[in-house]
């Protein structure tokens, strides 16, 4: 038996919004620890991972691990039927269920909606992601700042370079109409309302596809802050964490390299 209840549908709606433009379908792996997912996008440029820890749920029961193959567009359609303040309960049989049940209940518990989502058999390759990568540079910024930087720059072109030196990050773009750049310095004061922090072990300069950096802005409502981790020649790791360590959405984006 798998049963998980979220107090408000907002949490899962936001998480799905953050991943559904990158992934068409994925296995939602349920274990005693929580609900998680990982999948590559179709062109295999980006790996998206998501975790909702059991503590994110008001009720969480998973007697034995199960994997629910879900079409992201279908689950999003069903969740559109939940008001943001409605609770969401997901119920599935852990013995080869062919559908999962979704129950939405309003705050006064006098309106209850039931939906059944057909599950799919998805044959996906699971990749192992190192837990404690030692990155050359880590930058944390308000997620609203992230959105502004990459929605602006990706309009100019699709080749975006991130260069991080001591206390400064430079984001630049090359496009057909011209180019542009933006410098962001670490904020001085620790009690600044919207801090930017930059930790550099070694300066790093890497190039990434702007279209993806812009797509990741769909995760901005999840978190007030975002962390970007870079190591030369390796994928960029971008993390949006849910409040109270309830979970996260992480993207790993392959770099563009000079030939």
């Amino acid at each position: 038996m798998f049963e998980a209840k979220l107090t408000e549908s907002t949490t899962i709606k936001r998480v799905l919004d953050a991943i559904k433009d990158l992934i068409q379908q994925a296995n939602f792996d349920c274990s005693a620890d929580g609900l998680s997912l990982q999948a590559m996008d179709t062109p295999h440029v980006c790996l998206t991972t998501m975790t909702l820890r059991s503590q994110a749920f008001e009720v969480y029961r998973c007697d034995r691990p199960l994997s629910m193959g879900i079409n992201l567009s279908s689950i999003s359609k069903i969740l559109k039927c939940a008001a943001s303040k409605d609770s969401v309960k997901i119920v599935a049989d852990d013995e080869g269920a062919d559908c999962a049940e979704f129950i939405f209940e309003n705050e006064s518990a006098d309106r209850i909606a039931h939906f059944e989502l057909k599950l799919m058999d998805i044959d996906s390759e699971h990749l192992s992601i190192p837990e404690d990568s030692d990155y050359q540079a880590i930058i944390s910024m308000p997620s609203a700042e992230y959105r502004r930087i990459f929605s602006d720059l990706s309009i100019i072109g699709d080749t975006i370079t991130i260069e991080i030196n001591k206390n400064t990050a430079c984001f630049s773009v090359e496009g057909d109409i011209g180019n542009g750049s933006l410098n962001l310095a670490q904020t001085d004061s620790a009690d600044e309302k919207n801090p930017v922090t930059i930790n550099v072990k070694e300066p790093v300069k890497m190039t990434f596809p702007g279209k993806y950096l812009n797509t990741f802005t769909k995760a901005v409502p999840i978190s007030e802050f975002v962390t970007l981790c870079l190591t030369d020649g390796n994928p960029l790791a971008i993390e949006f964490s849910l409040p109270d360590e309830a979970g996260f959405v992480r993207y790993f984006l392959a770099p563009k390299i000079d030939q």
């Binding site: 990749l127 192992s128 392959a254 030939q259």
Partner: peptide, 14 residues
């Protein structure tokens, strides 16, 4: 010319 790498290159199958 810049070449877009594939993400599958960086992670081993679990």
């Amino acid at each position: 010319k810049r070449h877009q790498m594939l993400i599958s290159r960086f992670f081993a199958p679990a």
